[in-house]
């Protein structure tokens, strides 16, 4: 069998979207073809105005088992939130 084309992850920014969103992945021999294919597959119905492609093996992901140590500490840090401060009612909206 011949060698497989690498996998690319596709990110698209919608017409009124503020940021690129991951929409899926596809196989392509190079970045240029990945963009062409992403245009055909993922923007067939006006889904977006900007495409990023990233070869999948360039992405590192956090591990599901790290969920606790990674995210739990932030819950106890109420001082990071603006609701932590008591503003007198007389002051009005701040």
């Amino acid at each position: 069998m011949s060698k497989e084309w690498p996998l690319w992850e596709i990110f698209i920014r919608g017409q009124h979207g503020l940021s690129h969103r991951h929409v899926g992945s596809l196989h392509a021999p190079d970045a240029e073809m990945a963009i062409k294919n992403a245009r055909d597959v993922y923007t067939r119905r006006n889904e977006g105005v900007s495409i990023w492609v990233v070869e999948a093996n360039n992405i590192s992901a956090s591990s599901p088992s790290d969920k606790g140590p990674l995210y739990e500490p932030s819950e106890s840090k109420i001082y990071r939130h603006p609701t932590f401060f008591d503003i007198p009612d007389e002051i009005g909206h701040m």
Binding site: S2, K3, W5, P29, D30, M33
Partner: peptide
Amino acid sequence: GAWVRDGLLAHAEKKR
């Protein structure tokens, strides 16, 4: 289609 797939890959490697 095998030769087309191989050709595209070879071209991508050459460009890289």
